Amino acid sequence: MNANISALADTVGKVIVGKQDTVIRLIAALLCEGHVLLEDVPGVGKTQLITALSRSIGGKFNRIQLTPDVMPSDIAGFTMLDSTQGEFVYRDGAVMCNFLLADEINRASPKVQSALLEAMEERQISLDGVTHKLPKPFLVMATQNPVETYGTFHLPEAQMDRFFMKLSMGYPSVEEEMEILGRTEMRNPIANIPEPVMHVDDIIAMQEEVKRVRVSDGVKQYIINIVSSTRSDRNTVLGISPRGSIALFKAAKAFAYIYDREYVTPDDVKYAAVSVLAHRIILSPQGKTAFGTGEAYIESILRSCPVPAMTR
């Protein structure tokens, strides 16, 4: 594994017990300048995960609890009259940071969801004819509860498609939960990260290095075969769009970089596929009966697509 990535993951691991795979995938999304939707039950460490990542990098962290009464200005900021200067000035919204935790995004109104997703896509906000660039790097981790639906606004498919990855932490094992209790007994786990292990500029540099990872034509064709097989399948109502194939392409490069390779292998594609693609499809009634979830469907697609011979 890349030494910098290993150090970053180990530092986050001082706060988050286990869940190494989730941490690596979150770092991969960051390297690809993508955003993450974390669908999980309350209390499994979502807030601590993004807090630990921001503390490890030294970036600015904001958290906003999304409820039906949150306004778009809470997300994007607003302009107000400064009586001392006699002019309108911009006041930062929640998105003016490096790491934003948007808790329970499906409880926000569609207008607020649109304001957040616009900032995620454009990396900027426009108010009163003035454009304000967001800091780099910029990572949004939005959460939603997969069980409780009372008082929620379902994310439309077009908005789901804008999330680079969809992850789930899940409950800890008995051994992991025992360690969690032991750490909590001592002190706040976030205090285990006394200082950052890298700077935001290091992340920006690594993002550029990821772009230089080589991908052979055979692996590109493998990606295309995976996504195109979802478009004409009676098990799906909505297949993977070109945005999904681009995301899978980028994620495979990120995983190759994380594991210290200058080229992508089919295994990188397979490792990334479920997290990157499963939330972008809609299963037909027949598909729901056969597979149950998008994750199971993508795993079936991976088993049926021929894996190309590896060439550098």
Results as ranks from 00 to 15, higher is better:
D233S: 10
A191V: 06
M1F: 09
V213F: 01
S168Q: 12
C305N: 05
T311V: 11
A115T: 02
A290L: 13
Q124W: 04
A52T: 02
P172W: 14
I258M: 04
A142Q: 00
A76H: 11
D40G: 14
V12F: 05
I5G: 10
R123Q: 15
T230S: 07
P194W: 07
P266F: 06
L31E: 10
R55W: 09
V200R: 13
G45N: 00
F99P: 02
L277T: 10
I282P: 00
I64R: 05
M169P: 09
V17C: 11
V213A: 02
K111L: 01
D92T: 03
D161C: 06
D202V: 08
F153N: 02
G43S: 07
N235K: 11
R55M: 05
D233Y: 11
G58A: 08
L100D: 12
Q286P: 00
I240Y: 08
L248W: 08
K211Q: 15
E175V: 05
Q159I: 12
H154D: 15
E185P: 02
R25G: 11
K136N: 12
E157N: 07
D268Y: 08
I298G: 02
L139N: 03
R212D: 04
T152R: 13
A119L: 03
L134W: 09
V23R: 01
Y150C: 07
A158C: 05
M206T: 12
K253Y: 12
D10A: 14
Q286T: 05
Q20N: 14
F249P: 04
H35N: 04
L66M: 12
E121V: 13
R25Q: 05
Y90C: 01
Y90N: 02
T131K: 01
S216D: 06
E121N: 11
S300H: 10
E87T: 05
A290D: 14
Y171E: 08
K19P: 03
N235E: 15
S275D: 07
